[in-house]
C-alpha cells in the first residue's frame, strides 16, 4: 500500500515500486489530465508539481512521490489560475493535449521567478513539445499571466 497526496487529497493505492508516477496517477488513481507523450522525459506532457518543483512523472518512480505534495492539472493554485485565465484570453490551445504539461511547467516557472526574461521562459518551456505549434501563444499568455498576477 502506498499513499499519494494529489491536489490536497490523499490516495491509498497498490502499485509496483518502479511504476512511474504518471501511470499511477492515470491508470490507478484515474486522474487523466496528466498525459503520456514519450515516456522518456523528452516532451513534458506528463509534467506535475512535486513539492512545487516541476517533474516529468513518466520518469519518476511512484515511491519517490510518497510523502510529497503532488499538484496535477486538475489541481488549483493562484499562479495556475492566472495562467488559465491568460490561456483562455489568448485562445492558446489547438488540440489541447500538451497544454496540461505546458500549464504545469509555466506554473513552476512563475512560482520560482516572478518576472522571467524571454530567455528564462524559453529555458523553462523548451522541455515541453507542442506538435500543434502553439508556442507563440504560450509565450504571450505567460507574459499576460505575469501582468494579471502583478495587478
Amino acid at each position: 500500500m502506498k499513499t499519494l497526496t494529489i491536489n490536497g487529497k490523499s490516495h491509498s493505492i497498490e502499485a509496483q515500486d518502479d511504476m512511474p508516477l504518471l501511470w499511477a496517477i492515470r491508470d490507478i488513481i484515474g486522474l487523466t489530465g496528466t498525459k503520456y507523450g514519450c515516456g522518456v522525459s523528452q516532451c513534458g506532457a506528463c509534467s506535475v508539481l512535486l513539492d512545487g518543483q516541476v517533474i516529468r512523472s513518466c520518469s519518476i518512480p511512484v515511491t519517490y512521490a510518497e510523502g510529497k505534495e503532488i499538484v496535477t492539472i486538475e489541481g488549483q493554485s493562484d499562479t495556475l489560475n492566472y495562467l488559465r485565465e491568460a490561456w483562455v484570453d489568448g485562445n492558446v490551445p489547438q488540440c489541447g493535449y500538451c497544454q496540461s504539461g505546458q500549464l504545469i511547467a509555466a506554473t513552476a516557472l512563475l512560482d520560482s521567478n516572478a518576472n522571467p526574461t524571454e530567455e528564462d521562459i524559453n529555458n523553462a518551456m523548451s522541455g515541453n513539445i507542442c506538435r500543434c505549434g502553439t508556442y507563440p501563444r504560450i509565450k504571450k499568455a505567460i507574459y499576460k499571466a505575469i501582468e494579471l498576477k502583478n495587478k
Binding site: R26, G30, L31, T32, G33, T34, K35, Y36, T72, I73, E74, R84, W87, V88, N91, P93, G96, Y97, Q99, S100, L103
Partner: peptide, 23 residues
C-alpha cells in the same frame, strides 16, 4: 470574427477526454 474555442475550460483543467483517457 475572433471567436474563442468552446473547449477552453476543459483544455485548461485537464478535463477534455482524449481517446487515451477513455475508461
Amino acid at each position: 470574427k475572433q471567436l474563442k474555442s468552446v473547449d477552453l475550460t476543459d483544455f485548461t483543467h485537464g478535463t477534455a477526454v482524449y481517446g487515451i483517457d477513455a475508461r
